[in-house]
Each structure stands twice: as structure tokens, then as C-alpha cells.
Design a protein around this nucleic acid. Sequence first.
DNA 1: AATGAATGAGGTTTCATTCAT
DNA 2: GATGAATGAAACCTCATTCAT
Lengths: 237, 237, 237, 237
Amino acid sequence: MPQPPGHGPGYETKRWEIVDLAAGLFARKGYAATGINEIGEAAGLSKGALYYYIGSKENLLVEIQGRVMLPLLGTARRITALDADPLLRLRLLSESLLSMIMRRLEYIWVYEHDYRQLGEENRLRLKQQRDEFEAIVTGLLEEAMELGLFRPMDARLAMLQFLNLHNHTYQWVRPGGAWDARLLAREYCATLFAGFATGGTAGGGSIGGLEERVLAFLEAHPELVLDPSDDLSGAAA
Amino acid sequence: MPQPPGHGPGYETKRWEIVDLAAGLFARKGYAATGINEIGEAAGLSKGALYYYIGSKENLLVEIQGRVMLPLLGTARRITALDADPLLRLRLLSESLLSMIMRRLEYIWVYEHDYRQLGEENRLRLKQQRDEFEAIVTGLLEEAMELGLFRPMDARLAMLQFLNLHNHTYQWVRPGGAWDARLLAREYCATLFAGFATGGTAGGGSIGGLEERVLAFLEAHPELVLDPSDDLSGAAA
Amino acid sequence: MPQPPGHGPGYETKRWEIVDLAAGLFARKGYAATGINEIGEAAGLSKGALYYYIGSKENLLVEIQGRVMLPLLGTARRITALDADPLLRLRLLSESLLSMIMRRLEYIWVYEHDYRQLGEENRLRLKQQRDEFEAIVTGLLEEAMELGLFRPMDARLAMLQFLNLHNHTYQWVRPGGAWDARLLAREYCATLFAGFATGGTAGGGSIGGLEERVLAFLEAHPELVLDPSDDLSGAAA
Amino acid sequence: MPQPPGHGPGYETKRWEIVDLAAGLFARKGYAATGINEIGEAAGLSKGALYYYIGSKENLLVEIQGRVMLPLLGTARRITALDADPLLRLRLLSESLLSMIMRRLEYIWVYEHDYRQLGEENRLRLKQQRDEFEAIVTGLLEEAMELGLFRPMDARLAMLQFLNLHNHTYQWVRPGGAWDARLLAREYCATLFAGFATGGTAGGGSIGGLEERVLAFLEAHPELVLDPSDDLSGAAA
DNA sequence: AATGAATGAGGTTTCATTCAT
DNA sequence: GATGAATGAAACCTCATTCAT
């Protein structure tokens, strides 16, 4: 803990405000491109006073990451421990995650974007927490497979699909817009659960034979995907 | 009359190498956190010589963005113009996109991460190209709905799901690992196509009644998602 | 509530010293040829501390221009408003201008030499102030003509003669030398007032017929002024 | 001479063009603020080729100074040697000088502005030439005094008035405007010759008693010229 | 609890010049 | 005669951080 001992009563409040403010600035311009000066100006504090509260620039980043990761992990732990079927729990996790994304969008921007700017120690700790979160999701998906609610599949890949779908949302979502966390959770889970339940690659149904047609098509038109022998210089041409 | 001064034959080659190198550094550390010095050292060039090739740091960013966006857009245009059913074209687009992500992962990192560091003009141009790409995806999804291959749904939300699933992949994928672009495209499309074809929110099937149970559950355990009245200060407690 | 961050009491004093110092360096070497490093060394400040005071190099130039132009314009306004005949006011203006030149010679060097290095905005503002100064001089000269103290003449050309005579003085004057501002003002005004009162081009008196003789002479010896058809290459020969 | 031996026939021509071009650029932006790159671009030459012709940046400056000073001095020598009265010769010198200013305005800008950027050796040589020019003017003025055409006065101060009036003209004159060299020479000489002939400080005539009134006025209103005890900090107030 | 001042390293970019080809 | 490429120093400026008061 960087702060010296013996802070007054307003210390934590002010510190909180500054972190909040920094989250907004970091979200907009990126951590590395935001100066301590800007934060000080936004907070109406001289640099000396600012450092009294924050200790260092990286501390701000650490704090922001924590304010995303800790509640997220806490909720995930609580949800996974519920006595309910895995689909319900995944659906609750989905809403919880999207709710965090929409309610703390600026924190999420920083969390998703700038975690690589953390020092080694902090980065490792964050990584462990992320791993735990991923493990929780994976566990729920495996439960659903074991119950036959989902077809057998690579659980890790399923987890990554789940997280891709949710975690990229911050890039375009507008809190206060037409779509709230509940709606998005409903839609995402509808897609995923149906997708994970039926079909699959071998699948029949309406998309039967799709993969065979893809192969045939690509054999005829290899230029439709990037040529694997492309040395990248083709882009300029 | 002598030809006006310009650049020699090796210029573009060297320039290419430098951009490639910069993409790697930017991907690892972020654009703003990467210094011109590092690029120069990596390229074995003095700062002066480096600027002879790059003009400015932002030029590097622009070039990187272009080397992602332009081939991507070109392929998307060619695919959407194909005489094939929309599912096949979406599947081809998926593989093409994932192929780009895997083959130019460092470029993609920069493309996804640092587009906001572009100057206004360049950022606008890039935005238009991204919009066109999104419009192509949306169009294919709408075709599939009209043919009854997908249930009726918000096409824009469907497009965003499609792109979330694909575009977040760069965060964890390892080229040369067990999963190649084709496999991922197959899995992603399997999920999406099945999800978009059946069920949906109102849905029956195996997840019938899920939403009702969610509501009941959340009423009993409101702490399972972030409390909407949370002023964020709860996270620290 | 603490006062918002700002500058301490010694700030303006130090800033003043730095500007003064910069004026000396700019005067000696020219604005563009003087580096920020030199100023920092002269001031005994690191570059960071220097910028704490100056903001930018151009700010120094702006400040220097202002410290010449503003008092000059203020004095000119006060003088022109006096209830006294125009010759007296011109004579006062002359001494005031020369006094400024001699007492702030280094500022004047920069003012006369480097105003073109100002950014567009600052250059325009300065231009307006210079125009006002010129208008004041022109007005006084016109008053003198209307009173019959000066012969009728092009007032603008008279103003330019007045200013040529004064403003070029900085190039050779040595403060502390034999000539002070009062002496120079007396001499310049004696020359100008007598010159503007009598004679003129058509003139009789001692220089009667001079122009006719000039024409005759130049017809006989056209090489005495630069040949108008000279393509400049003759100088090298 | 910086150029290596054995140049082709076009060498001098091209060199001439480049110097001319550089004079234009230097005049507009100042010597120090103009880059070699700009000159190369303007000339359509690569930097290597440019250096083949110019040797160094300072060489350009030396050349420009020479193209002003040498013809000026040559003409002045020829004029002063004429068998004609000193007023006529001064009048011819005036027109010759103004003709140079108007016909080579860009050279004059550089000549007047940037002579201090010359290296020591070149600056000294130029100084000697300027001194000779001043001596010629001083000599003519002394002749006029001896003949009784001018009142007795400080010849050096008279010379400086003559040169102030002429040499500052480049700051505002527009070649091709309403005033040509002849007109300006006529006006300047009319002013100077009348001013130098009559009156003077002790003078009677129309401005009798002016200096006494000035002294009285300044005693009553000392703020009308810069306060000699002004420590410069008054300007900010 | 907070301030203004200072630091020193580093940021991106431009400079005049050289030289092998 | 002329080129493109390279250099290394220097340009102006901003950085995160510290500290006496």
C-alpha cells in the first residue's frame, strides 16, 4: 500500500474520485497517452497533492483493474455456487458481466485495453484472477455438456466463444441506448445455448453440407482468403 | 534533365520491413508506449535514417491500419459479390477474417487497440472503411433472414455478435497452435448459424422458461448482478 | 477548499528575468538561431524548469514584442492626445521612441528583426498595433500640413521617412555613448521638420535644378545606377 | 573558393539560380529558419546535387551578401569619383542605393537581416566593405559642408541619418508599386538636403523655441517618455 | 494536507552535412 | 554530375516523479 499512514477521513473519498476521473481519461485517450498533468487539472489538484493521493500513475491503473476484476470475480463465485442448473447460472453470469460492462464502461475500456501496461507483478496477479474467471465459465459449460444440455465439444473453445461474445461488447455499446444488459444477455445466451446445443461441425440440419461446399469453393477461389504464402507485400499492390 | 529526386529501388522494401517491425513493437507495448528510439534500434537505423523512411510515427500507424483494413475490405467485397447462398458467404467471410487475424496477428493487435491514437483525418477514413465492412456483414445476415435460414431478428445486433465473436479472437489466439483459421471459422459459424436459426428469446426447446427463471432468481438474489444503485464505491469495501 | 493550483509569488519575477535574458540572446544571435538550451543555461535552469516558466519558445517572442509595442503605443496615444501643436507632439514622440530604442535595445533588436517568426495569430495582432502606431504618426504629420507648418506632401511617405529615420537607429546606436535619445530626437526632428517645411521636389533655393541635372547625368552615365535590364548575373562578373 | 576544380559550363548558371532561389527563401523566412531541404526542393535537386553546387549553407549567405555589397560599393566608388558637386553625387548615390533595394529586394532582406549569422571571417570582410561605403557617404556630406551647402554638423551623424532613411526602406517598399527608386531618391534627398542646409538645433525659423517648449513639457509630464529609472517591469502593469 | 518549483530523462522531429555508388 | 541513404547532433517540448516548505 503506497499511502503513508494516518490519513484523514476524506482521504479515501478523494482518492476514489481521482481514480474515477482517471478512468475516464484513460478510457478516452489510453493509459500511456494520458499525462499526470491532465489528471491533476481534471481533479483541480496540484501535482504534489495529486501524488499525495495516488502514489504513482501505475497505482491508478492497478486500482482501476481491481475495481473491475474484484466485483466480477466475487459475483462469478457466488453465481457458480448457486444451486441451479448450469444454463441458468451461465445466463446469470452473462447478465452480471454485461451489467458491469455497461455500468462501468470507462473502467472496462481501461481493463481491456491497458492491462499490458501493468508492471510484471501486478500483471501476474491480474492474470491469475482472469484465469479463475475463465475457469468458472469453463466449469459451467462442462456441467452443461455432462447434463446433455450442450453437445460434446472443446470446453475451452466454448468458453472462449462465450467470452469473445461478451468481452468485445465494450467496443460499441452505449449505456443508456436501446439495449440494456438484460437484453444483451438474453440475446447472447440465446445464440450460444442454441448453438452449443445443436448442430456443430458434423451437423446436419439446415446447414448440412456447408463445410463441403466451403472446401469446394475455396479450391476454386483460393484468393478468397489470404494466401498463406502471402509475404504481406501484396497489400500494397 | 535528371529525374527529380525521389527514392531508390530498395526504399519500399526497407520501408516495409520497418513497418513490420513497428507493428511487432506496437503490438507488444502499445503505440503510445513505444518510442521511436526502440523502433530505430530494432531496425538498426539511426533516428535520422529512420525518419527518412517513415516520415512520422503516426505514418507507421496509418500504414499498419491500412495493411489490415484494405485487404480485409477487398476480400469482403469479393465474397459478398459471389453467387452463393448467404450462409456460405458468411462462412467464407469468417474464415477470411480469422485467417487475417492469425496471419497478421501483430497488425491486428495494433489495428484493434490503437486506432484511437490516429489523428482526426485518418481516424475518420478508417471509420468509414469499418462501417463498410460492417454493412457487408449486416447485408449477408439480412439475406439469410429473408430466405428463412435465420429467424427474424435485429440485423445490427446479429452483426455485432458475429463481429464480437471474431474480433476478440486476437486477444488469445496463438498462430501455430492447435486451432487454425478454418477450425475456428467452422466452430464460430456452427454456433452462430444454429443460434440464429432456432430458438431465440421467446424460444421453446430445451431452454424453455429460462428467462422466467432468471427473473425469479434475480428478484430473490439481486446481489447477483451489480446493484444498479451502486455508486461504485462498494467495490472497495 | 484549497485554492486551485497556480503560480507562487516569485513566479512573475523569475519569468521576467528569463524573458529579459532571452531578449539578450535573441538580440545577439537571432530568434531562430538561439536554442532553448542556451536560454536554460543562461538562466541556470533545466529545460523542464525553464518550460515551467515560459510555456513555449514563441511565448518568449510574444512577450518581448509586447514589452516593446505596448508601452510604445501607450505613450504615443498619450502624446497625440496632448493639447499642443503637432510639431511639439512629433518631437515628443521622436524622443519617446528613441528613448525606448536606447533603453531596451535588445528588445528592439528582436522586435525589429524577428517579428516574422511569430505564428500567424500573434503576427496579425502585432501588425494591427504597428498600424495604429503608424496612423498616429501620419495623423500628426497631416495636422502639421493643415496648419501650413509643412508643405503639402504625401502623408504616408512622410510618415515612412519619419519611421525610417528612427527605426533604423537600433542598428548602430550604443546606449551610454555620446548621443542620447534627446540629442538624436533633436537632430532627427531638425532634419525632418526643416525638410518637410521647405523645398520639396519642385523646390527652388539652393538645390534648384538638381533633378534636371540628375536626369542629364544619368542619361550620360546610365551605369551609375543598376541597369534595369540587369539579370543580376552581372554582379558576379 | 569552395567548388572543386573542373566544373562544366552549366555550373555557374545553375549555381546562380540556386543562390537566387535561396535569397527568396531566406528573405521570406530568415536564414536560420530556412532548411537546406527547402532549398533543394525549390531547386528540384537532391541534397547531394545541391551540395555539389553550394558547398555549404553559409556559402549561400556569403554569396548573397556579395551580390549586394559588391555592386553597391562599385557604384559608390564610381559616383564619388565623378566631377560634380556633392549634392548631385549624393543624389545619384541615393538613387543607386534605392534602385538596388527595389530591384533586389530579397537579397537586401537577407543582407540587412542575416549578416550576423556569418562566420567571423566573412563577417569581418563584410564589415570592412560596409565601412568603406559609409566613409564614401560621410565624405560627400563633408564636402557639402565645406562648400557651405550644408550647415556645419556632425558628419557621422548626418551619414547615419542618410543611411537610416535609405536602408530601412526595404522593410515596407513594394517593387512595382506607385513609388519607384527615382521618386524615393528625390523625396529623401529633398528632405535631407533641406534639413541639412537650414535650421538645425540652434535654429530659428518656423520651429524657433521648440526645444525649450519640449523641455518645459517634459518637466511637467515626465511620463511622456520612458522613465529612465524604469526597471522594465512597468510594461506589464 | 497541499503547494509550487525543480529535475532529468525521454519524447518526436529536423538539422546540415557526407559519401559510396 | 548527381543520387539516395545515412549520420549524429541538436531542435522544441513533455514526462512521471520528488521535495522543501
